[in-house]
Design a protein around this nucleic acid. Structure first.
Lengths: 186, 186, 186, 186
DNA sequence: CATGAATGAGAATTCATTCAT
DNA sequence: TATGAATGAATTCTCATTCAT
C-alpha cells in the first residue's frame, strides 16, 4: 500500500494534467487519492507547496532516468543526443508530468531561479559548458543553450503526441534531433 | 476617452500579466478599468470570452506590425529574419502581451486548433511552405517549423528581458537569429 | 424594510451575545439575517470588521442616549448621576449590546487606543476633568477615573440582571450610585 | 523535568495570554510544550477542560499567595488592604494569568456559579460579611461587594501595566486603595 | 448601455479530537 | 502513558455571474 503522501501526489498529477492546477480543488485531490481532506495539508501546508513538490519530483525522476541512459565513452554529440532522446521519450511516456510541467513553467509559480536550482538543469548546463569549451557549440550563454534545447524538446513532444505515427519512427526522430543540434552547434 | 470595452481590455492586460488570469478576479479588472462590475459581462459574456478576446487581439496587433515590416523584394531568409525580429521586438515592447500569451498558450484554454485559426499563424505557415518548396528548409511539417520558430522567439525574448544589456546589441541579436535559422534550414 | 447591512448587524448582535463572536460563524449570521452568505463581506470585508463596526455602533447609540439625558443647569454630581444612570439603564435595556461589549472589551480585538477614540469616552473624560479642576474628584488620571466608573457600571448591570427585583427599586439604585460616587469623589 | 501536564499548562498560559484561547489551537499548545499532540487529551479530555483547569489553577495560586499575606491581629481595613494589595501585585507579576482570567471571566465559559465555587471567592465574601456585620461596609449584597472590589483591582492592574512608573510608588497605590475602600465603606 | 448590490456555490485551510501503534 | 498521523466537519472568504434599477 502506498503511503498517503504518494497517493496524494499521484492523484494530483492526474487531476492537474486534466484540468490544470487552478481548476483542481484540493478536496478533489484528496477524494481521488482516497484520503481525508485534512491530511493533504499535513504533508503540504499549502496548495502551492504541493505544486512545487510535484515539480521537483518530476525533475528528480527525469534526472534519474536521463542519467541512467548516458554512457561514459560517449562523444559530446552522443551525450546530447542521449539526453535529448531521454527527455523526449520520458515526456511522451509520462504525459501527465509533461502537461503539468508545461503549465507550471508558464505560471506565476515559476521563475528562472527555481529552474536553476535543480540538478537536472545544472547537469545540462555543465554539458553545454563543455560544448562551448570544445568549440562545438555556438558561443552564447549556457543557460540560454539549455533553454533552447528544452523548448525544442517540448515542441517535439507536442508534435509527436499529435502525430502518434511518428512516435516509433527512428528516422523521423533523428530528423528532429538534427534540428536541435543544428540550432546549438557552431 | 476610451470606450469601456477597451478600458477593460487594457486593465485586464495589466492584471493578467501581473498575477495570471486565474488569480485575477473580474471585479478587480472592472475596478482597475474604472467601470462598473456588471458591464464587463455585457461586453464579454464570460471571463473565458474576455481571455480569448485578449488573445486574438494580441495576435491581430502582432500580425499588423509584422506585415508592416516585410517588404516585397526580400529574399526568403530576409523575410524570415524580418518576421523573427518583428516578433522579438514586438514582444519585448509589449511585455504584458507577451506574459499573457505565454500563460494562455500553456493553459487548458488553448489548443492547436485555436492557434491555427489566426492569420498570423497562417501567414507564417505559408512562408514555411515556400521554404520547403524552395528546398531551403528541412523537410518537415510546416506547422512544426512554425512552432519551432515561435518557441525560439519566446526563449530569445525571455533571455533579453533578463539581460537588458543585449536588447540593443544588433550583433547579439544576429547570433540569436542564426540559431533559429540553423534550426530550420536544410 | 431594513437594509441588509442593518439586518446583518441585528443578527450578529443576537448571535454574538448568545454564543460569543468566536462561536458564531459568519454563515449563521447571514442566515439569521435572511441574506446571502456573500453579502456580509460586501459590507464588512472581514469578520473582525463586523465586530469592530458593532462596537462603534453600540458606543454611538449609548452616546446619543446619554447626551439626551443630560440637562444644562445640572450640577456636576447630577451630571455624573445622569450619565451613570443612563449607562446602567441603557445596558439593562440593551442586554445583547451589553454582553457583546463585555466580551469585546476583554478580547484581543480591543485596546485602550480603540476605547479612547470614541466621543462617548472623550465626553466622559472631559467631565472627569471638570471634577478634578473643581477639586471634587480624587486627584488621579482622568482616563482611570472613567474606567473605574465604567467597571462599576458593568458590575451594577450584571448584578441587576441577576436580581431583577431591584431593577425598578430607585432607592437601591441610589445606593449603587453612592458606591461609585464615593469611589471617585475626594 | 516538569511533568507533561504542567508543561502543557505553562505553554497554554503563554499562548492564551498572547492570542486568547479561541485563537490558540491545541496543537500549538502541545508543540510549545514539547509534547505530542495527542497527550493533551489524555490530561484534558477537552479543550474546555484545559481552560477550566487553568482558571482553577490560577485561583488556587492567588488564594495561596493572598492567605500567606494576611496576619491574624490585623484590623478589618488592614485585612482588606492586604488582600487588595496582594491581588494587585500578584496580577502584575503574573501578567499572563491576569490576561487569561480577564478573557475567561468575560467569555461564555464563565458564570457566577463557577466563580462562587472557589475558596478564594468564599474567603473574600466572608470578609465582606464581617464588614457588614461590623457596620463598616455599605449594606449591600456581599457577592456584589466582592465583585466591585475585583473589578476595581482589575482596573488598577491595567492602569499600572500601562503606566509602569507608578508600579513601585507606594503613595500612589495607597491612593488607589482609598478609591476602593471609599467605594465599599459606609 | 450602465450600475453595483446581491447571490450562493465553492475554495483553501483549520482544528478539536480519535486511534492504531 | 505517549506518539503523531489521520479524520472530516466547520469556517472564513472569494468570485463569476445575475438582475433590479
Amino acid at each position: 500500500m502506498l503511503d498517503k503522501r504518494t497517493k496524494l501526489m499521484n492523484a494530483a498529477k492526474v487531476l492537474f494534467s486534466e484540468n490544470g492546477f487552478y481548476a483542481t480543488p484540493t478536496a478533489k485531490i484528496a477524494k481521488e487519492a482516497g484520503v481525508s481532506n485534512g491530511i493533504l495539508f499535513h504533508y503540504f501546508p499549502t496548495k502551492a507547496d504541493l505544486i512545487h513538490a510535484m515539480y521537483y519530483d518530476i525533475k528528480d525522476r527525469i534526472f534519474i532516468y536521463s542519467v541512467s541512459q548516458i554512457y561514459k565513452e560517449a562523444t559530446l554529440k552522443e551525450s546530447i543526443y542521449t539526453l535529448w532522446l531521454a527527455a523526449v521519450e520520458w515526456n511522451l511516456e509520462n504525459a501527465e508530468d509533461f502537461e503539468f510541467t508545461l503549465q507550471f513553467e508558464n505560471s506565476p509559480y515559476f521563475s528562472t531561479e527555481i529552474e536553476k536550482k535543480h540538478k537536472y538543469v545544472q547537469m545540462s548546463i555543465e554539458l553545454a559548458e563543455q560544448g562551448r569549451i570544445q568549440n562545438v557549440f555556438k558561443d552564447i550563454n549556457t543557460l540560454l543553450l539549455f533553454q533552447i534545447m528544452s523548448r525544442l524538446v517540448e515542441t517535439n513532444v507536442k508534435f509527436l503526441k499529435h502525430n502518434p505515427t511518428f512516435q516509433n519512427d527512428v528516422e523521423f526522430k533523428n530528423k528532429l534531433f538534427e534540428i536541435a543540434w543544428d540550432a546549438i552547434k557552431k
